[in-house]
Design a protein around this nucleic acid. Sequence first.
DNA 1: AATAAAATTTAAGGATACTTAAGTTTGTAT
DNA 2: ATACAAACTTAAGTATCCTTAAATTTTATT
Lengths: 219, 219
Amino acid sequence: MKNISKEDYLSEIYKNSDENGQVKANLIAEKLQVSNAAVTDMLKKLKREGQIKYEPYRGVELTSKGKEYAKNMVRRHRIWEVFLHQIVGLPWDKVHDEAHHLEHSGSDELINKMEEMLNFPQFDPHGDPIPSKLGIVPEQKHNVALSNLKQNQKGVVIRVNDFDNNFLIYISQIGIKLKKEIKVCEVLNFDKSILVEIDGKKNNLSRTIAENIFVEIKK
Amino acid sequence: MKNISKEDYLSEIYKNSDENGQVKANLIAEKLQVSNAAVTDMLKKLKREGQIKYEPYRGVELTSKGKEYAKNMVRRHRIWEVFLHQIVGLPWDKVHDEAHHLEHSGSDELINKMEEMLNFPQFDPHGDPIPSKLGIVPEQKHNVALSNLKQNQKGVVIRVNDFDNNFLIYISQIGIKLKKEIKVCEVLNFDKSILVEIDGKKNNLSRTIAENIFVEIKK
DNA sequence: AATAAAATTTAAGGATACTTAAGTTTGTAT
DNA sequence: ATACAAACTTAAGTATCCTTAAATTTTATT
Ligand SMILES: [Mn+2]
Ligand SMILES: [Mn+2]
Ligand SMILES: [Mn+2]
Ligand SMILES: [Mn+2]
């Protein structure tokens, strides 16, 4: 087990790439909670290994080799999440932290066996796509942040951000889960919070919460 | 996850303690496949932390703190083994290597949940005892190495050593598993190999193989 | 184009966990 | 009691992954 850090860097670069596949060094530092200097160090190592394209002061970009590695890590993480949720019965607010450690252990054969056991899931418990053994990433339904909906629009939850456990616990409590329909009743001009209806019950969601829930807009 | 090495040292000290709880430094080096010098280094660190009693040139001994930590690691390892065997369906020759990595990840809560799911198993797939949450180690039935049996004695397999996958694959192939009865038909003076009967079929086992299978002697 | 601010790298250093080679201590054999 | 080999530790050095502080490059502002 020598590559835990490297693997985390590669995953994070993959997950934070923009449309052109570029990432800023400092964004990686922030996501991984390390200093900018640590990132520079690691980027040099990853470049030496041919995992990334990197010129000092410019952004970072995965090479095809690096992207393959990164996608496999994301795959491992998300399969662990589904496994922990469906087989072990952990709630969706617990699986990310456990998977973050487990993703670095267990052979690829074990991951493949778990995937088969789970009947080849396409998405993790938060709606994120799971790259296949061959590196193919399932297409998401077209979705937008709930905060973008106008009054009286309805959306079906496709994905939620998984990095804050309390956020996940909270939205579960008010009935939000994948595939649930949410109707926006009112957008408050005061603080841009929104009043939504879920299962016939009304709730006020802060803008920040609404920005972390992604829905397919229903006509 | 910063303690992987330390955890491996503690487990190994625990598993290799003699009747007086003592272990020789070089035995740890051999088991962990590192240099003797590396062991000396780590022993100093573990002593500083109060996990072991250690005086240079004398043996090592776990303190109660160290023993508690070590037993928990052994518990984690063995629960992972049972889980991988029973839930994921891995054969007994695959579980040790996977568990050796997984034992360092996953919260204690996850381990406890898996244990419950497995209905609190007392022994792992190789017959090794699983310490409880409270640190209580289940008693093994009295057993001896198969190599100690005399001609015409019968034994029931209680435990097998799990550190060599090919050994496990081989003995599975000839029908040996936990609870299986084995009869010693003949001990060959030539090389101390033994002729055994399993399910009515005869097989010759080398002394080395017989030394790694432990049986309860049947009258 | 000059200047200031922001982003990023370099420099120096620390902890962990190894390595090999060179001592030191211990126990055994004569 | 001495000598010697085996067991063990110390010394010196390496790789990884991190830190803070200082320097540099880029970018935005005037
Ligand atoms: Mn996740
Ligand atoms: Mn993760
Ligand atoms: Mn094992
Ligand atoms: Mn192990």
